[in-house]
Design a binder for these strands. Structure first.
Lengths: 219, 219
DNA sequence: TAGATTGTTAATCGATTAACAATC
DNA sequence: TAGATTGTTAATCGATTAACAATC
């Protein structure tokens, strides 16, 4: 009953929540090792139980009326929905601090994401080894993409070369781009782009701080 | 007409879009130097003109019927709404690659956000100077917060010390926390928290890649 | 049985889009 | 005037929440 393909488009917000459910489940303490209810899961990430069940309902549900969810079933189901069940190879272009920070992100392996290449133009960085991967010149990108069937490209370059980096990735067949540069990049519509714009988060924080301060001051 | 205080709670999505509007406006090419229409602005970030006007309407609007928006008015108005018009001081705790990447983020100054302290426990890092700021021991945090009236704390520590770092910030009076560690942190409800969880973005990308591939395969 | 649970439909709520008067 | 524009209300659309049958 948990294998239904969704007919309708799944809301973006539901996808974000699925990611948060999965995160939460993988960090669960001992006592929830085996089973968890929608109520308990919801409480842990500050949502309502019906929200959890409705989100799962898009995919036919992961449990059975009367029983609580089996944690293992949830994890496996969510991973399959999110496409984390089959291995994807990734490269990082731009090995400054941000690129090295991303390269050292510990969760990649567990998510079935495999880093196979690091690239830069800076001769000082080329030859360095990070996480057992040697930093290579960007000229080697086509070769590595072909050799490892890379599907995901991560851009951690300066903004002014982000677009040409994306172009290079697209030409060589990359299907998804995770963009950390502050500029929006464009690509053919069959290439998926996820922008990670720090400024949006920072401005949101600033807004929350402002409104919280105002509330406090008028009390 | 652009100074109305909103009575009702502003949707989170509206705030994110305001941030994107502001971003877009600050990157505008010459020809839009002076004025821009809701249609043009919307097109640049893939939205509908009515969405833009409705978002602005929450705050009473920024223009006048018949005229296009004055870019300068928009920028000033959005900055004020987002709380970017008065200076805030920030510190970064954790000066690994991620911390250094954030410290080097170029937009801070323009957004009225002022980095005044860098902290770590690693003796190798303490004493280093980044962006004219000397890395200090975390024991100095209380002193610096008091001296500079720091309101924003940025956590770029490993996950296992994220919560205690947050506690230290809260005790010393910090009002907003920008958390880059993969763990959710908790704080009193009068302290604002913005989590920046990479895994959510990465899982979203993975989901998009999966569904795009499926579509392609069934065509 | 009583209490707790999920799946699922229906009701509510909120956000986006459309329509249009007012203005230039 | 005709065309373009914003502000603002109304209509539509979609997402969240509530309710409840089925199940344990």
């Amino acid at each position: 009953m948990s294998d239904k393909q969704p007919k309708k488009k799944i809301p973006q917000m539901t996808i974000s929540r699925l990611a948060r459910y999965l995160n939460c489940l993988s960090l669960l303490p001992e006592e929830y090792d085996k089973e968890i209810s929608s109520k308990e899961l919801a409480a842990r990430i500050d949502l309502k139980p019906t929200q959890v069940r409705q989100d799962f309902h898009h995919f036919g549900g992961f449990g059975q009326a009367g029983y609580r969810y089996k944690v293992e079933d949830l994890i496996i189901g969510l991973e399959r929905i999110l496409g984390l069940d089959n291995l994807q190879n990734m490269i990082i272009v731009g090995v400054g601090h941000l690129g090295q920070a991303v390269a050292n992100y510990r969760k990649f392996e567990r998510l079935g994401l495999n880093l196979v290449g690091l690239f830069d133009i800076n001769p000082r960085l080329i030859g360095l080894t990070i996480r057992d991967i040697r930093v290579r010149d960007i000229d080697d990108i086509p070769e590595v993409i072909k050799e490892h069937k890379v599907s995901i490209g991560i851009i951690t370059t300066p903004a002014d070369v982000a677009q040409e980096t994306a172009n290079l990735m697209v030409i060589n067949g990359i299907k998804a781009i995770w963009n950390f540069s502050p500029k929006n990049i464009s690509a053919p519509h069959n290439v998926v782009i996820q922008n990670e714009h720090l400024s949006v988060g920072l401005m949101t924080l600033s807004y929350k701080l402002k409104t919280a301060t105002e509330e406090y001051n008028t009390k």
